[in-house]
Amino acid sequence: MYFLYFDPSVGAMIVQAIVATVAGVILFSKNLMYKIKTFFGLHKHQDDLYEDINVDDSDVDKK
């Protein structure tokens, strides 16, 4: 059960199916481009201020 103290909006719940499909296509093509670039050695490593989305759990397990 959810405690709905704000309106998630029905439209926003339904639209996510389409958003996810588009996101899937974008991610797939990005991955493909990445692989192609890496294959040809074109991939530039960028120094990022922000980490990637994954949380590194190995640190936690070591603790």
């Binding site: 339904i14 996510q16 199916a17 996810a20 499909t21 996101a23 974008i26 991610l27 990637d52 989305i53």
Partner: peptide, 19 residues
């Protein structure tokens, strides 16, 4: 009726927003 959305699909939304 809100459509169903698989976890994989939701993760795609989250990841593409992040990127």
């Amino acid at each position: 009726n809100p459509k169903k959305l698989s976890k994989k699909a939701q993760l795609n939304i989250i990841t593409s927003l992040y990127d």
